[in-house]
C-alpha cells in the first residue's frame, strides 16, 4: 500500500550543496558578511546529521531502555549547553547551566514519557523510532523557548534594575517588583510556538508532517501525528518556559528579597 520512498542519490545532495556554495559566493561578492558562517553552518548540518544517522542506525539495532536513556541524556545536556551559550547575561556558577537544563528535563522528559506511555503507546514504550524523534522535537522547541525567556528575563532585570530597586525600596514583594519583566520573558518564550500553531497548515506545512507525506504516509495520518506533536511541543515549551522563568526570577532575588544582579555574569 505504502509507496516506496524515492531514494536520494549522493548527486542530489551534492546539487543542493552546490546551491549553498553559489549563495555563499554571491554573499561574499556583495560583502554581506554571512558567507563564512553560512558555509560553516551548512557543513555542520551535513556532518552532524550524518553522524546522528549512524547513531540512530546503531540505536535502532540495539533498542534497549539503557541506550535510549543515554541518548536522551546526551541530547538534554547539549540542549542545556546551548541554552547557556545563548544568554547575554548568564547566571554564575552551576545555575548558568543547571537552570535551563532542569527546566527542560522537567518538561520535555515528562511530556515525552507521557506521550509514549499514554498516547502513542509503541511496543515497548521506549522504542527508539518513536522516543528519540519525539524527544528531539520537544527538546528543540523547549530549548528555544527557555533560551529566549531566560535571556529576556535576565537582560530585562538588568535594563530595568532601577525600576525593580525602586519598587523594592517602596516595600513591594520581589515577585511584584519583577512582574513586568517576568511577563515579557514568558511572552518571549511562548510566542514562537503560539505563532507556529496559528500559521500551521496555512502559511507553512510543518516539517514532520511534510516528512511523513514525503515518506509516503497518507496525509490525514500525517496530520493526526502533527497535531499531536504540536500540542505536545506547546505543552512542553510552555511548562519548560514557566519553570525556567520561575526559577530564574527566584534566583535573581535572595532570601531577603534583594535584587542580586551580582549573580549574573
Amino acid at each position: 500500500m505504502t509507496p516506496e520512498i524515492i531514494e536520494l542519490q549522493p548527486l542530489d545532495l551534492a546539487l543542493a550543496g552546490g546551491l549553498i556554495i553559489v549563495l555563499a559566493a554571491l554573499a561574499r561578492a556583495g560583502r554581506l558578511g554571512v558567507a563564512r558562517s553560512l558555509l560553516i553552518a551548512a557543513a555542520r548540518t551535513v556532518v552532524q546529521l550524518l553522524l546522528v544517522g549512524l547513531v540512530l542506525e546503531t540505536l535502532f539495532a540495539n533498542a534497549t531502555l539503557y541506550w535510549v536513556a543515554l541518548m536522551g541524556s546526551v541530547m538534554l545536556l547539549v540542549a542545556g549547553r546551548e541554552v547557556m551559550a545563548r544568554q547575554k547575561r548568564r547566571f554564575t556558577g552551576f545555575w548558568g547551566f543547571g537552570l535551563g537544563t532542569a527546566a527542560m528535563f522537567l518538561s520535555s522528559f515528562s511530556v515525552a514519557v507521557l506521550a509514549l506511555v499514554a498516547l502513542v503507546q509503541p511496543e515497548p514504550w521506549y522504542q527508539p523510532q518513536y522516543a528519540i524523534p519525539l524527544l528531539g522535537m520537544l527538546l528543540g522547541n523547549t530549548m528555544n523557548g527557555v533560551a529566549l525567556a531566560v535571556d529576556r528575563l535576565t537582560d530585562g532585570a538588568w535594563q530595568q534594575r532601577d525600576v525593580i530597586e525602586t519598587r523594592l525600596a517602596l516595600g513591594e514583594p520581589w515577585n511584584v517588583a519583577v512582574e513586568q519583566v517576568r511577563r515579557d520573558a514568558m511572552r518571549s518564550g511562548m510566542i514562537p510556538m503560539i505563532n507556529a500553531m496559528a500559521a500551521a497548515g496555512i502559511v507553512s506545512l510543518p516539517g514532520m508532517m511534510t516528512g511523513q507525506i514525503l515518506a509516503g504516509a497518507p496525509p490525514l495520518e500525517a496530520v493526526k501525528y502533527q497535531v499531536l506533536i504540536m500540542l505536545l511541543i506547546t505543552v512542553g515549551t510552555g511548562f519548560g518556559t514557566l519553570a525556567a522563568v520561575w526559577l530564574a526570577a527566584r534566583r535573581l532575588f535572595d532570601e531577603r528579597e534583594r535584587l542580586r544582579l551580582d549573580r549574573l555574569t
Partner: peptide
Amino acid sequence: GHTWRQAVIYLPADGAWW
C-alpha cells in the same frame, strides 16, 4: 524582606517611575 521595607522606606535621590 518586603514587610521590613514597607515600614522602613528608602527614598533614592532619583527613583524610577514605571
